[in-house]
Structure formats: C-alpha cells, structure tokens
Amino acid sequence: MLNRRSLFPALLFVVIAACSSGEAAESAPAAPAAPGTTRETAVFAGGCFWSTEANFEHMPGVIAAVSGFTGGSVRAPTYDQVVRGGTGHVEAVQVTYDPARISYRQLVDAFWLTIDPTDPDGQFCDRGPSYATAVFATAAQKPIAEASRRAAAARLAPARFVTPVRDAARFWPAERHHQNFARLNPVRYAGYSRFCGREARLRRVWGSAAT
C-alpha cells in the first residue's frame, strides 16, 4: 500500500513532508457558534483528510471540520497505525454544522463533487484502504445519504460509482498537526494538491460542477 510517507519525489519533500511527519503546526480553535445555534454532525471519508476538511470548512453553515479516522476496530488509532494498515480505519472528517443554515442533504450533495467516486482503491495519489471513500451515516441520515448517492450516480455511469454509504462508527480525531492543515500550511498543501492532480481529475469526472 502506498501512502503519503513514500509517495513524493525528493524535490517535493520540503514542500509536503509534514503530511507524514511529527512536525507540529498549531491548530486554530474552531469559531464558536452563535448562542442558540443547533449543532449536528456528519462524517465523510474522502481520501486525504486535509482535502476533505478544507472542502467543508469554508461552507456557510459549517461550524467546524475535524480530521480523523473512523470505520475500524482499533481504539484511538494514530496516523502511522492507520496508513500502515490493519486497523480498518479510513481517513475521515467530522463536520459540525448548523442545520438551520445548511442541510445534511446539501452536505452530502457537495461531498460527491469533491471526490472521484469511481475509484475503489483510494483518491488521486493517495492509494490504499485507508484512503477509501464513504459517507458514514446514522440511521436517521442514511435514507438521505442514499438518495443523494442515487442522484449523484445518475450523473455518471452508475455501475462505476463505488463510494458507499456506510453505517456511522466511532470517530477518532487525528493528531494536532493534521488539523486545519490546508489553511495553516497553504504552500505545503498547494504543492501536495498539485502533485496529486486533484483538480484535473475532478474536472474529468464531474466537469464544470467539480468542487
């Protein structure tokens, strides 16, 4: 299995090495919600959690996006454990949002456009089981997520649409230096994203609708 520790050539190492290193980057606290704001959560696995987090945290109505792991059997897994394999976890993001400003359906609809749902083996240059994609839904969320999935699959060749809706599982936040990575390390993140060819692939899959 490939992961971000071994993917990049030497010329890019300085730009993106923090992706798998212990180099600390201070994590800015999430902005507090206004008094009386209702909070709900949703969990999405979209490959590299840096990108999934960045895609959600700017959306109106999203209060916070936290990078972490879900879907596996190991308690409190570390990044190194997950990418090494065997834990069953995937990289994921827990999104806290205000349902009065953005609905769960809107979040799921937006999620599809940020991934390649036809890729069963990872996302972009991140390969292996820990980078698999999924929507992790509670019992109440699952019918909404499934309806969104059917609508998104109809826009592509449905047989090629492999990203599943899975049952919600315990979410474990990742280490501090992985939080808010794209915002706090824009140069490193831009180098990683360009190397992985994210934008070009999303345009090939979704055309002008790609996020």
Rank of each mutant, 00 (worst) to 15 (best):
V108K: 01
P186A: 14
A45D: 12
G61H: 11
P158T: 08
A190P: 03
S103D: 06
A153K: 02
T114I: 13
R150F: 07
A64V: 02
A174N: 04
Q106E: 15
A100D: 14
A145F: 04
D119N: 11
W172A: 08
E175W: 00
A154F: 01
A210N: 02
T133S: 11
V14W: 14
D109H: 12
V135S: 03
W206F: 04
T38I: 13
R150T: 12
A54W: 08
L107W: 07
A92P: 08
R160S: 14
E199P: 01
E53W: 06
R101L: 11
W206L: 00
V43Q: 14
S103P: 04
V90W: 01
A54K: 11
H89F: 02
R183D: 11
R160I: 09
G61R: 09
F161G: 07
A152T: 00
L184I: 15
A153M: 04
L107E: 06
A64F: 01
T118L: 02
A76I: 10
V62Y: 03
S193H: 15
P164M: 03
N185H: 01
A182S: 13
T133Q: 10
L7Y: 11
N55K: 07
F136R: 00
H177R: 08
G71A: 01
A157K: 13
T41E: 10
G61I: 12
E40L: 11
A24D: 13
S51V: 08
A64R: 01
R203K: 14
V74R: 04
R194T: 13
E26W: 07
N55I: 05
R188K: 10
G68E: 03
D119I: 04
G72H: 00
V93C: 02
A200G: 09
V82K: 02
R84W: 05
R101A: 06
R160L: 13
D126E: 09
R84M: 11
G207Y: 01
A28P: 10
T70L: 00
V82N: 06
A182V: 14
F161T: 08
R150H: 12
T87K: 05
G47Y: 05
A132T: 12
A151D: 15
E57I: 12
A200I: 08
G88N: 03
P32E: 10
V135C: 03
A76K: 13
R39H: 10
D109E: 15
L156N: 01
F49M: 05
A139K: 05
R5C: 15
A157T: 13
A140I: 06
V90S: 03
I102H: 06
R5T: 14
L184R: 14
E175R: 00
A25H: 13
A76V: 11
M1E: 14
R198I: 13
A100Y: 09
R201V: 04
R127K: 11
A159I: 02
A24W: 06
F195N: 08
V162K: 08
A132G: 13
A137P: 05
A154M: 03
I102L: 12
L184E: 15
R4H: 13
P117E: 12
A147H: 07
P32Y: 09
A24L: 12
G191E: 06
T78Q: 07
F161L: 09
A10T: 09
A174L: 04
S20A: 15
V62R: 00
A147L: 09
A76E: 15
F13G: 10
L12V: 14
K142S: 12
V205I: 14
F181T: 06
S148F: 04
V74M: 04
A132Q: 15
L113Y: 06
V108I: 08
L2M: 11
D167N: 05
